[in-house]
Design a protein around this nucleic acid. Structure first.
Lengths: 228, 228
DNA sequence: GCCATGTTTGACAGGATTGTTAACGCGAAT
DNA sequence: ATTCGCGTTAACAATCCTGTCAAACATGGC
C-alpha cells in the first residue's frame, strides 16, 4: 500500500476565495480519479471508495473537498460536458463557411473522443437520468439562459443555410436536422463502440483505423448529402 | 397500500420445461416492471424494491423468479437488445434493394424508438459498462458465434454496394461506414433527446414532430450523400 | 521551540440494499 | 377431506455505502 503525499511544498495556502475554485494538488487528483471512475462505471455504479483508492487517499478526503457524492458527480459532469459541447457551439456560431464548419466539427469531435472514448456514453447516460442537468449545463457554459443564446447560435447557421438554399447550391434542410445529423455521425460511433467492436469483430486498433478513415470521409459524406 | 393479486384463475400450472422460459403472469409482470425501472434509472441506479413496487409484489418474489439482481438485469438487457438489433440485421441481410433497405431501417428504428425512448440510452450505457455482453448478445440472438454469421449479413450488403459503385451509380463507401452512418442517424437523436430538448427549447411534442419529419427526410438524406 | 491553520486519516454511525428463510395460502390431485 | 407443491409474504441477516468526527499530522509564522 505504498503511500505518497507530496503537497508541492509551498503555494498550498490560499484556500478561501469566493470564486468557484482554483486550488491545490490533492483536489485535482481526486477530480481526475472521480472522472476516471465515473466515466467508466457511471455515476450510480461508481463507489466513493474506488475513487479514493484510485486517487490514493482516504475516502473521507473526498467529502472534505467535495461534500457529497452528488457534488463530486456534478463537478465531473460539468467538466466532461465542458469538454465536448462549447467547442461545437463555438464553431457552429462562428463566421466560417459551411464547409469549414462541418470539417472542423468533425475533426474536433473525433479527435477529442478518440482520447476519451467513454465520454459520450457517460454523458448520454447522465443526461437521460438527470435531464434537468442539461439546462443547468447550457446555462453554466454560456452564463445565461439557453433561451437567450439560442438565436445567437443557430441564427447565423440558419442564415447561412438559407442563403445557400436560395442560391440553389444546397438542398433545403432545417437547422435542427442539420445539427443533429452532424453530431449524430460524429458521436454515435463512440457511444456504440463496444457494440461495433463485436459486430464487426474489431479490436481497439481496428476501431481506431475506422475512426481515422471516418475523419477523412465524414465531412464530404455530410456535405454531399446536401448537394442540390 | 392497496394490494392486488390476480392470478388469472387457471392456466398457471405448466412450470418446469427445460427450455429457457415460457411462463405465467407474475413473472411477466416483474419483467415488465424491471424493464421499466432499469431503462429509466439504469441497471446500477435501479433498486429491486422499486421494481417490486411497480410490479405490485413483494421483493422476495423477484429473487424467487430471477435469483439475483444481475440475472434480472440480464433478462431485461436481452429483451431490450432483441427488440432493436435483429430487425435491422434482418433488413440489411435481406435481398431488398438498397433504397428499400435504407427506408425500412429508418422507419423501423424510428417507429420502435418513438415508443421506447429510453431504449438507446439504456443499451448504450449498459454496453459501455459490460462490453462482454455484446458478444453474448449477438451469439444469443443468432444462435452461433458472431464470427459465423458476420459474412452472411454484411456479405450481401457489401456486394450490393460494390455493384452500385462499379456501375457508377454510387460513391464508394465501406460497408462498416455505411451501416454506422445509417444507424447513427437513426438512434443518436433518441439517446441525446434530453440534450436536444434543452438545446432547442423543445417540449416532448416538438421532439415528436422533429422525429416525424426526420422519418420522411432521413432516407433521402442518406441516399443523396452517396450519389455519384 | 511552539502555536495556529489547514490537511489527512482511522473508526464508526446510520441507513439503504441485496439476498435468504420459514411459514402461510390456496388450488389440484388423490 | 387430506395432502402436496407452487406462489407469496413478512421478517430477518449480512453486507455495502455514504457521510461524520475527533484526533493525528504537517507546515509556516512567530
Amino acid at each position: 500500500m505504498a503511500v505518497k503525499k507530496r503537497n508541492t511544498t509551498g503555494a498550498a495556502a490560499g484556500r478561501k476565495s469566493a470564486a468557484p475554485a482554483a486550488d491545490a494538488d490533492t483536489e485535482q487528483r481526486i477530480l481526475d480519479a472521480a472522472n476516471s471512475v465515473f466515466l467508466r462505471r457511471g455515476t450510480a455504479g461508481a463507489r466513493m471508495q474506488d475513487i479514493a483508492a484510485e486517487a490514493g487517499v482516504n475516502h473521507a478526503l473526498l467529502h472534505y473537498y467535495f461534500r457529497s457524492k452528488e457534488r463530486l458527480a456534478e463537478a465531473v459532469f460539468r467538466r466532461a460536458a465542458t469538454r465536448l459541447l462549447p467547442p461545437v457551439v463555438a464553431i457552429l456560431a462562428s463566421d466560417l463557411s459551411l464547409e469549414e464548419k462541418v470539417a472542423r466539427v468533425v475533426h474536433h469531435e473525433l479527435d477529442e473522443l478518440r482520447a476519451a472514448p467513454h465520454l459520450p456514453g457517460y454523458l448520454l447516460s447522465e443526461l437521460n437520468h438527470h435531464p434537468e442537468r442539461a439546462g443547468q449545463l447550457v446555462q453554466a457554459l454560456a452564463g445565461v439562459d439557453p433561451e437567450r443564446i439560442r438565436p445567437a447560435i443557430f441564427g447565423t447557421l440558419a442564415k447561412q443555410i438559407d442563403e445557400r438554399v436560395k442560391a440553389k447550391k444546397m438542398r433545403a434542410i432545417a437547422v435542427e436536422q442539420f445539427i443533429v445529423n452532424l453530431v449524430s455521425l460524429c458521436i454515435f460511433p463512440f457511444a456504440a463502440r463496444p457494440m461495433l467492436n463485436t459486430m464487426f469483430g474489431w479490436k481497439e486498433e481496428e476501431f481506431a483505423r475506422f475512426v481515422e478513415r471516418r475523419r477523412g470521409e465524414l465531412p464530404s459524406f455530410f456535405l454531399d448529402a446536401l448537394r442540390p
